[in-house]
Structures are given as structure tokens and as C-alpha cells.
């Protein structure tokens, strides 16, 4: 393979194992009484999965390089402002790396046909799914790999913009280091000078705008009491 920047290897090392995550969350849902082949299309099951995925995201961040050096107050500020980006990135990454066309691969390994989702979804959810699908297709064409996704996760986490951070300079310097590592990596694997890197940064901004819409959608669902009592998900929805 291409020569990999040291930092990119470190990011990969921090990345949780997909199979372990799948087993952990499946076991948790079964413990809560959800049948594996039950009714995975329900909105509340998706919320439970999102909630459990959030736990894994916090655990990933907490044990990751750079983040664990921060004070808890800064850690909370960073996570509060990017949790929905990270959640959406998790879903999109799974589709690009392991998913099949025309279906949504869940964190538990179950698959739902996109046509089934579309037939049950209202206009807002249908449009969110459609836009997410377009992002997945773009990344498929670019053949974005695990290394790049791992870098993007850190770019999302270490976003110093608009927050009252104690360690602002440190967070800014980490962001620069991550960008540098991603740029170096994309230059190694792509002959199109800067093109690939620019595409990935564009994806990042599209992801942020979509996750912001998804967060609004979830918040509305929460206000109408349709989000089941998922501790971390609700807490994050209240954070903004």
C-alpha cells in the first residue's frame, strides 16, 4: 500500500473494530428485549441504535490520541458541537465501506431496503435519507478508505470554531496536524494534485449541513415525544 503518515496509522489504531461494535450493540439491544429479526424498521429502534452508537463515539473520543489530554470541560464542548456530525459520519462510513447499494446497513449488521424506508417516511425524513444516499454515492465513486474516514473523524472532533475553549490553541494545532496528515495521505494515493483532498473537505461541509438538518428533525421528534427515552441522545439534543 501507499506510504502511510504516522498520524494516520495512529488514527486507525484508535478506530473501534466494526465487528466488536456490532456485537456489543446487538447484545445490548437483545438485553433490552429487541428481537434480532424483529421489527428493525421502527423509529424507536433506530433511536436506540443511535444512542448506543453515541456511547461508542464518546468512548472512542475519550481514549483517542490528542483528545485524552484535554480537560473534561473542553472535551464536552467539542463533543456537544459535533456529536451529530460524528453520528452521521458513522452511518455513512458503514455504507461506503461495508454496505450494499439500495439498502441501509445498520450498526447491528441488519439491512433495511431504502425503498422500505422511503415508503414509511414523511417528506423530511425521506429527503434526509435521499441526501445521505447522495453523499454515500459520492464517497463510493471517490473510493474513500478507512484511513481517510479515520482522519475525517478527527477533523470533525477537533473543530475549534465558535466555542469558548480553554485549550483553544492546542485544539487548533491538532486540527492543523490532522489536516496535514490527511493531505499527505491523499497525495500519496491519488495522482490528482489536491483534488482528492478538496473533495474530502467539501464532503465534510456537506456532512455538517446534513447532520444539522438531521439534528433539527430529531429535536422536533423529541419535542413531540416520539424519541424514546435514550439517555445520551436526549442529553445531546438538549446541549445546544
Amino acid at each position: 500500500g501507499p506510504r502511510m503518515p504516522h498520524l494516520v496509522m495512529e488514527f486507525l489504531r484508535c478506530d473501534p473494530d466494526e465487528r466488536q461494535l456490532q456485537n456489543k450493540i446487538t447484545a445490548h439491544l437483545q438485553q433490552m428485549g429487541w428481537e434480532k429479526e424483529g421489527n428493525p424498521g421502527t423509529f424507536s429502534l433506530m433511536c436506540l441504535m443511535a444512542d448506543q452508537t453515541l456511547f461508542s463515539i464518546v468512548e472512542w473520543a475519550r481514549t483517542s490520541i490528542f483528545f485524552k489530554q484535554l480537560k473534561v470541560n473542553d472535551q464536552m464542548k467539542l463533543l456537544h458541537s459535533c456529536w451529530s456530525d460524528l453520528l452521521l459520519l458513522d452511518i455513512i462510513t458503514r455504507q461506503v465501506l461495508y454496505g450494499k447499494e439500495g439498502s441501509l446497513l445498520l450498526v447491528t449488521g441488519q439491512e433495511i431496503k431504502l425503498t422500505d424506508i422511503a415508503s414509511h417516511a414523511g417528506p423530511t425524513l425521506a429527503s434526509l435519507v435521499q441526501r445521505g444516499q447522495e453523499l454515500v454515492e459520492k464517497l463510493h465513486i471517490l473510493k474513500v478508505d478507512r484511513q481517510e474516514f479515520a482522519c475525517i473523524k478527527f477533523l470533525i472532533l477537533f473543530n475549534p470554531g465558535g466555542k469558548q475553549l480553554e485549550d483553544h490553541h492546542y485544539i487548533e494545532s491538532v486540527q492543523e496536524q490532522v489536516e496535514g496528515a490527511l493531505l499527505e495521505y491523499t497525495l500519496c494515493i491519488s495522482s490528482h494534485l489536491l483534488g482528492r483532498f478538496a473533495h474530502l473537505l467539501l464532503f465534510l461541509s456537506e456532512l455538517r449541513s446534513l447532520s444539522s438538518l438531521a439534528e433539527d428533525y430529531l429535536y422536533c421528534k423529541h419535542l413531540s415525544n416520539e424519541v424514546p427515552c435514550n439517555n445520551l441522545l436526549i442529553e445531546m439534543l438538549h446541549a445546544k
Binding site: 464518546v58 468512548e59 473534561v72 464536552m76 456537544h80 445520551l232 442529553e235
Partner: peptide, 18 residues
Amino acid sequence: KKKDNALLRYLLDKDDTV
């Protein structure tokens, strides 16, 4: 406001006391 974020704080803090 801190109470609202009790779970996240707990998750981030839990091993720091070990």
C-alpha cells in the same frame, strides 16, 4: 446546566479518578 450534561460528564470523567 451542568446537571443537564451529567451523563456525558460521567462518561468522560469515569476513568480519570483511577
